[in-house]
């Protein structure tokens, strides 16, 4: 009992941190989002956001980029993971490290390098801003898709695939009826790890698109005009949206995990 009390004290520094840097700012955001300039409660900021076509457009645009990024990552990652974990190629684990290695290098440094390469190939980055953004995003997030999928395929019991074949399934049927459903937990957690950060990632857009057409800079532009209330509302909407998405994917992956646990 005494020990557990003492252990609890160890959590106090973090508790203070949590309060000052997480809870307090959250409170401030929601306070500003739900008040007008004089401190009275109002929902009009909420209305401003959804009647501002630029704000809505930016939101949808972010989602589209995140969706395309996720889809391309998935299409690239699945075959890669399959080959690395199942084909028995020499040094599969070493190849995996090579794929994951970019994660060890500073994020902006990597993007700067990519920017140089792309502008060398294309002449000027401004020619293909959208393509560049997608390339940058995929480059950034691919390892987060490969790792969970690789793990789920790797730990799959080979006997299950053999059983399917034994029962008369050809290679295609083995894949679609057994392998794909059983690697769902990996796919779902890969999507979670790519889609959500891709939604709010503005560094890639900032460096490769040279545009302010993103949520981050939208908020920034409100704040620099001292419009705290509308800026806070955009943040709050984004926060709630991401919270919702996290909860949704969490539920799906829980289901998938429950299936995966029986592997």
């Amino acid at each position: 009992m005494e020990l557990s009390l003492k252990r609890k004290y160890l959590g106090i520094p973090y508790l203070i941190f949590l309060f000052i840097f997480v809870l307090l700012p959250l409170f401030v955001i929601f306070y500003y989002a739900l008040t007008d300039g004089t401190g009275h409660f109002t929902l009009s900021n909420f209305g401003h956001f959804f009647t501002n076509s630029r704000a809505i457009g930016t939101l949808i645009y972010s989602m589209v980029i995140a969706l395309i990024t996720t889809a391309i990552c998935l299409l690239l990652a699945y075959p890669t993971s399959y080959v690395l974990s199942r084909s028995g190629i020499k040094g599969g684990a070493a190849w995996l490290i090579i794929i994951v290695m970019p994660m060890w290098i500073n994020f902006t440094l990597r993007l700067t390098a990519l920017k140089e390469i792309l502008s060398f190939i294309e002449g000027n980055l401004a020619f293909h801003p959208f393509l560049n953004t997608i390339i940058g995003m995929v480059y950034d997030f691919l390892p987060f898709m490969v790792l969970p999928i690789y793990n789920s395929i790797e730990k799959m019991d080979t006997a299950l695939l053999e059983a399917a074949e034994d029962l008369g399934a050809g290679k295609r049927e083995v894949f679609f009826k057994v392998m794909l459903p059983l690697s769902m937990p990996g796919i779902v957690s890969g999507i979670t790890m790519v889609f959500l950060p891709a939604m709010t990632n503005y560094v890639v857009l900032d460096m490769l698109y040279n545009s302010t057409y993103i949520m981050g800079s939208l908020i920034g532009s409100y704040f620099s005009a001292f419009n705290w209330n509308d800026g806070a509302m955009v943040s709050a909407v984004l926060l709630v949206l991401i919270g919702l998405l996290t909860w949704l994917t969490g539920r799906v992956s829980d289901d998938a995990d429950r299936e995966g646990a029986r592997l």
Binding site: A163, L182, M184, R262, L263
Partner: peptide
């Protein structure tokens, strides 16, 4: 035309 009962059953968990 041969079927197998596997050591750890290998039933499809999904």
């Amino acid at each position: 035309p041969i079927n197998t009962v596997f050591q750890k059953y290998a039933l499809f968990p999904n």
